[in-house]
């Protein structure tokens, strides 16, 4: 399979020297994100995140299934990340690359293990029926900072998602179709966000946010911090690379908190806008909106 083109020596020297002089190739400040756009689809549970030239699409779906035998009171929640050759020909189908493994582990730790989604609320009949919530993450275009974008897309899609309403009468479980009853949102506990820091220089003294693919290829080390707006760290991953002073990592954590709060506000605002758009004039408008499609 074709390999990702590596930056040439000149390019490498140019970018690194520019960073040492306090400049980024695209003229951003070191702690500035690229243009971030979040769009929701016509269906519930579709979120499309554009971060500069990076583009990620998350799609949430739900179905009723049997729970795992060892966890009869929990629903099933999975996040699938399969990078297709669409993002880069270097990604091969059915052969996960390191990027893919790390991305899926990170999302798993950030969203699933931090209990962002209350899996107990997905239980319908203990030990027999539960909801299985599945997030499919599609990377459409990869130009760096896949992790922050993907995490935002996954969290946004899950918060946007509505699952079919259910009711239990005696022993019978009824799952209502969207036409019968308005679908209900998932029971959501907190919204974690990933912030990736890239380090440059001999001792990792230069710190960048939202690195592009070129910058990512040249970094000496990186640190990914996931946290929610309450200041709870869900995960930190500085997986090797050039050693960095402990103090600057603590600075990273506080910078991540500020950025996480910004992302959280943005997401709340977008969700509110979307629900307003859907709810224009109540139920009637919703029907006509469907007709337009």
């Amino acid at each position: 399979m074709p390999r990702e083109a590596e930056p040439s020596l000149n390019e490498r020297a140019f970018v690194v020297q520019a960073l040492q002089e306090g400049l980024r190739l695209d003229g951003r400040a070191f702690d500035q994100f690229r243009g971030l756009d979040l769009k929701f689809g016509d269906h519930y549970g579709v979120a499309d995140v554009t971060l500069g030239k990076t583009r990620v699409l998350a799609n949430v779906s739900a179905e009723v299934t049997a729970p795992y035998i060892d966890r009869p009171f929990d629903g099933i929640f999975t996040i699938t990340t399969e990078l297709s050759p669409m993002a880069s020909p270097a990604f091969e189908v059915n052969r996960p690359t390191e990027t893919e493994v790390l991305l899926s582990r990170l999302l798993e730790k950030t969203v699933r293990r931090s209990n962002a989604l209350d899996t107990e609320s997905l239980c319908l009949i203990a030990g027999q029926k539960c909801w299985s919530i599945r997030v499919d993450l599609h990377v459409l275009s990869h130009d760096g900072n896949l992790i922050d974008g993907s995490c935002l897309a996954v969290v946004a899609a899950l918060r946007h998602f509505r699952r079919p309403d259910t009711s239990i009468e005696g022993e019978t479980l009824t799952v209502y179709t969207p036409a019968e009853r308005e679908p209900v949102p998932l029971s959501w506990l907190h919204s974690p966000f990933c912030i990736t820091f890239s380090f440059y220089g001999e001792e990792g003294e230069i710190m960048l946010l939202d690195a592009t693919l070129l910058e990512e290829q040249l970094r000496v080390s990186s640190c990914i911090i996931s946290l929610n707006k309450h200041g709870e760290i869900c995960q930190i991953a500085k997986l090797g690379g050039t050693p960095v002073e402990a103090v600057s990592l603590i600075q990273c954590a506080s910078a991540a908190l500020t950025k996480g709060k910004e992302l959280s506000t943005l997401l709340d605002q977008k969700l509110a806008e979307d629900s307003k758009r859907r709810d224009k004039g109540g139920l009637l408008a919703e029907l006509s909106a469907e007709n337009e499609r």
């Binding site: 269906h43 579709v46 799609n59 009723v64 669409m86 599945r134």
Partner: peptide, 18 residues
């Protein structure tokens, strides 16, 4: 590579997804 992003949903039935 052809990535389907939207397929028509049937409001009158709950689809299986796995």
């Amino acid at each position: 590579v052809l990535q389907v992003t939207v397929a028509p949903e049937n409001d009158y039935a709950n689809a299986k997804v796995a």
